[in-house]
Design a protein around this nucleic acid. Sequence first.
DNA 1: CAAAAAATTTAACATAGGATAAAAAGTCAT
DNA 2: ATGACTTTTTATCCTATGTTAAATTTTTTG
Lengths: 188, 188
Amino acid sequence: MEIEAIINQIYPVPEAAVVKLKQVTEEVTLPKGQILFEAGKISRNVYFLKKGIVRSYKFQQDTDVTIWLGREGDTVISLKNYVEDKPAYENIELLEDSILYRISSSDLQGLFNEDIFLANWGRKFAETELIKVEERLIARQFSLASDRYNDLLRDNPDLLQRVQLGYIASYLGVTQVSLSRIRSNIYK
Amino acid sequence: MEIEAIINQIYPVPEAAVVKLKQVTEEVTLPKGQILFEAGKISRNVYFLKKGIVRSYKFQQDTDVTIWLGREGDTVISLKNYVEDKPAYENIELLEDSILYRISSSDLQGLFNEDIFLANWGRKFAETELIKVEERLIARQFSLASDRYNDLLRDNPDLLQRVQLGYIASYLGVTQVSLSRIRSNIYK
DNA sequence: CAAAAAATTTAACATAGGATAAAAAGTCAT
DNA sequence: ATGACTTTTTATCCTATGTTAAATTTTTTG
């Protein structure tokens, strides 16, 4: 997915704004396993995924919980870095060899303060992500793990192909064993 | 809490921008029980809470789940209305007689497109809310209901005073009965 | 202030999903 | 291909939390 398409899919902006963004964007190819963000550290970068898949996870109390999965066209940031300039609470790694567009946070910040279209573009990005996360929080409350699995299967079948089940499990909010049970249809 | 303080607490903006916002702001006093947003409907307003308390909730499968609780200084919006101009999925009601600042979405939208400071202010608002929701989602995974209750007790003791426990329960992601058990310290 | 209504707690029982461990299946390197 | 390692499934047992209903307590209202 090309950078221009990614930008306009988040929120359409005039060509001039796209050009400004492209000027500070660098394309990088990185191998599977590469860590983009590390818990406890500050990274001054933002990425867009041209090709590949990415996992954000948190390690706590001996468990590894997947917070988010990203694919082509998604924006990869560590919220604490991006919003508050503070150390990340999560790790973000590449699950496949990937091609990414990289922008430094300070360049992006500079553009936000200088171009109103980009400022509104950044606003839309955060707003859209906000809805997604709120919907996930609500789904945890209203639906069974098996329903959440079936929803994922319906809406994002490719994720299930490309991401190992242990990661999917905690993304859905259950243990791997439990997800395995769900899949084998003990329930339903 | 005065409108100027609310605005600058979200993200500081120049006085000129505050003035623009204030020009389109109206102060309204509304009684307890008043519905600000209704599921399935579009409302073209945004509110800031000067005084009072507010609850956002969703009714589904015979259960009423509290999504969010707001108090003095908080911004009250329906995400689907605000971001996508679509019908709300939640209801939002006043839990106390309240005083609010009201702005029409179209006025706000107009300011976002005209004033870069306000556009970035709107961006910061969404970003900050995004972090809060993501942290709640993560807490659901890592902590027991009793821990989440104790965290709320520590960080927001006033909410527990002002909001009935049935609402608090689903906000924490448990049933009222379960919260009652937690409080009576069967656990811990 | 008494009656009615609403909110909270308590009790008894049920279950989705967690924990641990072992078996099976799949992947990778030599 | 063969063995080593990783991932997924299966099995057993267990617990936090759900469900329903009844008993209290608190709040509201005539």
